[in-house]
Amino acid sequence: MKGEMKELKLTVNGKPYELEVKAETLLVDLLRQELKLTGAKVGCLDSACGACTVNIDGKAVRSCSVLALQTNGREVTTIEGVADGDKLHPIQQAMIDHGAIECGFCTPGMVMSAKALLDENTNPTREEVKEAIQGNLCADEGYVKYIEAIEIAAREMRGGQ
């Protein structure tokens, strides 16, 4: 029923939560409005732009395309949970150093898609990198430096090999 509150247990960025949410609440709204994690952006709400991408149990998922309740018992990682304290993740560091970021609106989603890829495979081909971020629209930087930055990060994660 619309408006009915349901119980939800999940982990977000390593922190366990026990919440009551409406059945129709989208994950992105839970993150942004209830948990105040505004790193995931709302670009379209059509699952087309990828700006709201998060990781659920390690997979890249558009948080506008799942209900909050579908994450019951799962582990959600948002952009706010990627760095280890002050130490940035190699993907984040490479995107900064390589000049991949312009307006930055797609950046959190881009990082989350890249992270899901590199957590599974630190030696992807260029085609695999492009495929991993194909659901993430960028408006201004042309993807070239994002693709190269993810490759640089992959090398870093392989220990420079």
Binding site: G39, V42, I79, V82, L88, I96, G104, P108
Partner: peptide, 21 residues
Amino acid sequence: KAIPRVDARAKVTGQAKYAAD
């Protein structure tokens, strides 16, 4: 030279605040 952007860290960690945030 190649200068990393001054706002890149805030953007890549999700801390940058856009109007909707």
